[in-house]
Nucleic acid binder design. Structure first.
Lengths: 209, 209
DNA sequence: ATTATAATGTGATAAATATCTCATAATATC
DNA sequence: GATATTATGAGATATTTATCACATTATAAT
């Protein structure tokens, strides 16, 4: 099975690029265009498509509309994807305001915070107390949550989320969450991401010398 | 060569965990402790160490202080790592306030924005105009930048950064940056990260049925 | 119509990465 | 001091992932 994480990331990138191309009035696209635009080889693009049974026309390339539809279908993007946010500190509230989600048909439908002061501090969005998560998730059948709470309470909140019915978590807290195998956790740690860049730069510099 | 990105990510996680253990008063650690804490197998931990020539004591495990020192050395963390931030919108200003960097000995030494209104809006940190980047980076020999500007100007700013001497970029703008091979770019796209979680959850749900 | 061209699609191959296995050696136990 | 135990270290193996190479076919040109 090769629908690896990287492969899905590439699909998302192709999709974004296709939407831009469509916006510009293009109708067809070739694997090398997409590769160029997303920073991979043309062969990689075709292989990815082949993996999901997406086919184009020999010589003619791919019809953008069809391609977007197929990718949407694979990614489950037939409708707007609803997620909740827990934790509205610096990072959380930035995520709440972040405009990049809408473009990809993702919507943060509700935000939660333990701090009652933050519960009032609403921009457009209302922030609910954490104890409301259970009811909200059950009523709205939400499956995915963004976790942007302090590390110290991340595990505890995670357990509440799972109990409520959340099945996937994008975790910004710099801790390893302990979850049942059935739960998807994607860790995003800002410091580690930076450390990686720093490391790679330093390796390059060493090799130069 | 197996110092893959994932391997470095794991090293960062080990390091974080080791520092916590040290804080708690532990002196020694075993590969299975570290594996447990970071969500990988004990064999993976040992293999990672072996790759970098880190060795412990048969039976006795690893001495935490030594281990931290070795990893610091590999990651180039002998001193505080200085980075700059470009773009102080929602995301950028959240990153500026983010406390998680300091713990990992990373410091955002300066922030830049094109918008003169934001240049005044200082919390603790002063925000400089983008045109000052060149001088700043040259004077302070900074090598790594966080890019949190709007997609539309990301490429342009990237070129300025490279011209100034930046060698590694953590890119939050949802575009593929075109850079020379010598420049490290790590893309971090919030929407894609979420889409990935959503995709994986939906795959699980389908398989259940 | 026939030939040349240009793009796809995928099996074969290579490279990267993770897992397994077990010999090895340090410590603890009797 | 001899034996049993426990954890490391790394070669061997398996798995995953990406690249290559080329047969295939649709279109364009002559």
């Amino acid at each position: 099975m090769s629908e690896s994480k990287n492969c899905i990331v590439r699909l998302c990138r192709y999709r974004r690029c296709l939407k831009d191309l469509k916006e510009l009035g293009y109708v067809k696209v070739f694997s090398d265009n997409l590769g160029e635009a997303t920073g991979v080889t043309a062969a990689q693009v075709r292989k990815d498509f082949s993996l999901f049974g997406i086919s184009g026309n020999k010589k003619g390339g791919y019809v953008i509309d069809n391609l977007i539809e197929r990718i949407n279908n694979i990614l489950g993007k037939d409708e707007v994807q609803k997620v909740i946010l827990v934790g509205t500190g610096n990072l959380g509230s930035a995520l709440l305001k972040y405009k990049g989600f809408e473009k990809e048909d993702i919507q943060i439908t509700a935000a939660f915070d333990a701090d009652s002061a933050k519960q009032i501090k609403t921009g457009n969005n209302q922030v609910f107390p954490v104890r409301d998560i259970l009811d909200y998730v059950k009523q709205n059948r939400t499956r995915v949550a963004i976790l942007a709470v302090p590390a110290a309470v991340a595990q505890e909140v995670t357990e509440q989320l799972i109990a409520a019915g959340i099945r996937g978590i994008l975790n910004f807290a710099p801790v390893t969450l302990r979850v049942p195998e059935s739960i998807i956790v994607s860790n995003f740690n800002l410091a580690i991401e930076l450390e990686n860049v720093i490391y790679q730069v330093s390796v390059r510099e060493k090799n130069k010398k």
